[in-house]
Design a protein around this nucleic acid. Sequence first.
DNA 1: GTCTATAGATCGATAGAC
DNA 2: GTCTATCGATCTATAGAC
Lengths: 205, 205
Amino acid sequence: MARAKSSSVSESAGEKVEQILKGAMQEFLAHGYAGTSMDRVAAAAGVSKATVYSHFGDKEGLFAALVEGLAKKRFKILLDIASPAGEAKIVLRQLAETLLNQVAEDAEHITFMRMIIAESGRFPNLAKIFIRHITLPVLEKLIQYLASHPELNIPDPEAAARIFLGSVVQFIIIQEILHGKEIIPLDKERMIDSLTHFMLSGAGK
Amino acid sequence: MARAKSSSVSESAGEKVEQILKGAMQEFLAHGYAGTSMDRVAAAAGVSKATVYSHFGDKEGLFAALVEGLAKKRFKILLDIASPAGEAKIVLRQLAETLLNQVAEDAEHITFMRMIIAESGRFPNLAKIFIRHITLPVLEKLIQYLASHPELNIPDPEAAARIFLGSVVQFIIIQEILHGKEIIPLDKERMIDSLTHFMLSGAGK
DNA sequence: GTCTATAGATCGATAGAC
DNA sequence: GTCTATCGATCTATAGAC
């Protein structure tokens, strides 16, 4: 019952590593990089501090490993969202809807975004991992969609995709991350309606 | 030459206070909240640590005073930008242009935005000060402008204003704060063109 | 009011036993 | 590999001299 004290078998291959990553994620998301101590990471992971150091070298190495893993996870989620099919009016509406509902309600995602921005000064490479693995693929999918539907009459698909996703993400940042919904409330549906309205404004109807 | 050792006159009313605020801003912008020590603030301000504490109580009080001051300064700058006059096409283009050029090139403003987002989890009130003093006034001016020009045929000025400013701000966040311009470069002019295109899409031309 | 000096806690990182 | 114990530095905050 109590965990094997281990002697030879070494059944716990990457077991402690995952414990550490999980505990570290918890602490970094809660307190940011500078605000997180290695003692607390070790405690949250249920291992000793020395074990943490033996696996990840130092605090920065642990943080980098953590963010890369999270970015890949988020990458998957968002790419599933952005698989377009059907009429433009419906596709665009659904994309905005899913982003606003899925992301805005996901507290961990919110906190993750906050942390990436927070540490983007000291850790530019982590921000770039985020851009490369999350922002860029979603943007590219949308650009491709807009460009392959000439009936929409969009003069610059790349810029339009930026406007579309930028509006949605910034809405989430203001309402959720910066707690703006208590000060400037605005229904998600109205954002969705207006976004699709502008995107379809050039269509022949 | 050397500063008066002071004995009675007390010419330095809020002199040290301003020194402290200046030094603190420097340190907080460079290292974030948790990453900044009161020793370094005192050193950067050229005063003793005890003096810092006597004026601002504790670290959080100092941070709050700092952010409130910055918010008011930013508020002024952005409100000057958002004073609309003239034809819609030109007014909107100029607003986007000024925001993109003025804000994107202002390293201090970039860093300030990063810090506000970074600390918005632990210090929600600071984020709210930012929203109330900066985001809200600019948003309101734009809403008022859009609403008072019915020839633009904008169905929901509040949502449209969000889209306009959200696109611009998120563009700055991705390109500048998250270092995205090295990965997804995009000319500001194309953003401006597309933004005005969408906003004017309902006008009778 | 402003300083020096320091208390008391916590930090990142490591040595050494097992 | 993983642990305990600890080092030396640094942290926030304060006491006491001037």
